[in-house]
Simulated assay, not measured.
Amino acid sequence: MTVPRRFLLIDDNPHDQLLAREAFAELCPDCHLTSASDGPQALEILQTTDDLPEVILLDINMPLMNGFEVLQALKTDTRLAPIPVVMMSTSGAPEDVTAAYTLYASSYLVKAQDFPAFVNQIECFLRYWAHCRTIHA
């Protein structure tokens, strides 16, 4: 089975973006990880490319548009709605998890607190998506 190769990370934290880039480089060097620092930037990227990501990783707590607002915008756009969105947040609050799934998130991960655990989390994430089929693959 093949792992999706195109991912979009939407996260305002430069440190989290760096950790994700390092984890992806270590675990899936053939993967292409694009980063956006906020919702409007992510939507601009998505609306101006023909090479859509196969999976989106989306933080909740961001300025300008929070993750729920971004998720809602993604799911109301017929071109973007089929892309699986994995919420990846420091919040494990039940109301956040419920809100994410109510807005049709594909999955919800609570970010690991240290780099080795985060790498393990990304490894599990990639292994999972290797067994899934995405519409843009």
Results as ranks from 00 to 15, higher is better:
Q47N: 14
L27T: 08
N120Q: 13
M87N: 01
Q72W: 03
L64R: 12
D12V: 03
L64Q: 12
F118V: 14
S35W: 07
R79H: 07
R5D: 12
C132P: 10
N120K: 15
D11S: 08
D114E: 08
I56C: 11
P82C: 08
H131Q: 15
Y108I: 02
C124F: 13
M87S: 01
C132G: 09
M87D: 02
Q41Y: 08
T90E: 05
I45G: 02
W129A: 07
R21H: 13
M88C: 11
T48G: 13
D114C: 14
Y128I: 00
L64H: 10
C124G: 14
D38M: 09
T2R: 02
I45A: 06
H136R: 15
I83S: 07
Q113H: 12
P14L: 06
T34R: 10
V55Q: 00
C28L: 13
S89I: 01
L18R: 13
I135R: 14
L52N: 06
A93T: 07
A112E: 02
D30P: 06
P4F: 04
W129T: 02
I60L: 14
I10V: 11
L8F: 04
G39L: 01
C28N: 12
V55P: 00
T34L: 05
E123N: 12
I135K: 13
F115L: 14
E22K: 14
A42S: 12
I60F: 06
D12N: 05
A73Y: 00
P82D: 13
F125Q: 04
D77Y: 07
E22V: 08
W129N: 05
E69K: 10
C31E: 11
N120E: 03
M87V: 08
E95Y: 08
A81G: 07
V110N: 07
F115N: 12
L19G: 05
D12G: 02
L126Q: 03
S37G: 15
C124S: 13
K75N: 02
R6M: 09
D59M: 05
Q113K: 14
S35V: 15
C28W: 05
Q121F: 04
